[in-house]
Design a protein around this nucleic acid. Structure first.
Lengths: 137, 137
DNA sequence: CTCAAACACGTGTATTTACACGCAATGCTC
DNA sequence: GAGCATTGCGTGTAAATACACGTGTTTGAG
């Protein structure tokens, strides 16, 4: 009966620990890891609606709305309107690109610590996480 | 440059997904997976202070205070006072043991889904998570 | 014994997250 | 073209989380 450790609790615990490690590494950048990661994903996705961004990142649309609000107030994200006046299309600003470039080394340091401690098994970890993420709801 | 996926974002994503899977499995029990896991850990730890419980579970003491509040109101946790009047010692109640026994099969079903999808690599996953959890702050 | 340091707690506040709900805009059916 | 279903959004609310701060309790130095 060593099978008593909850996979969910374990994952949540790891996520808390790793989040604090990244947040500490990013201290001074002005970004939390949640903000920085979201900006990265938005930059990658290009201008898109909140629903589309949520589908790409796995966040709820309303979570994005609230996460983006301070970033927009700080000038890192701007909303434009496309043809569909329902959709609010967001994109990163030049100021965000600059701030992200400055923050990138801090993120890379944290990422390197992870990669090092995983000793080449990062892809293996990701593959395992992909499997449980892929379970049908 | 395939190394661009943030380990932290990945872990947070997985934790969100898995949490919703467990919460769905536990629906009807009246417990969230956070509550159920915490009760399990408290039962294992035995009567202890919030600080000690936090050290055992990796939660902040204040998080435990707030998570335990509704559980105490529902009669699943009780606070007793030991010799040290600073410390609030908490323990699970018989009602909690009963409710947990009823909930156990639901949790096991969710856990089994995880274990199955990991195909025998659960211990490997845990070992990888242990490694990054063990990084110094 | 006294009093300051150390300890344990709870609350205020803030972040991250998502569900339920309602409103505005679009599209589709007839 | 009118009306209804669909889509996209924002807000209210709530859970989980932790940091800063203040209060009460214990301990230890003198």
């Amino acid at each position: 009966m060593l099978d008593t450790v909850c996979v969910c609790a374990k994952l949540r615990h790891s996520a808390r620990i790793v989040t604090s490690l990244y947040d500490e590494a990013l201290a001074g950048s002005g970004f939390s890891v949640a903000q920085f990661s979201l900006l990265r994903m938005l930059q990658r996705a290009g201008p898109c609606s909140l629903t589309a961004l949520g589908a790409a990142t796995g966040h709820d649309r309303t979570t994005l709305n609230r996460t983006l609000k301070p970033l927009e107030a700080a000038g890192f994200v701007e909303s434009i309107e496309g043809r569909d006046r329902r959709a609010r299309v967001v994109q990163v600003t030049p100021a965000a690109r600059e701030a992200m470039a400055r923050t990138q080394p801090l993120w890379e340091a944290a990422q390197a610590r992870m990669t090092d401690s995983l000793g080449g098994d990062k892809d293996r970890l990701f593959a395992l996480l992909d499997r449980i993420e892929g379970l049908p709801a």
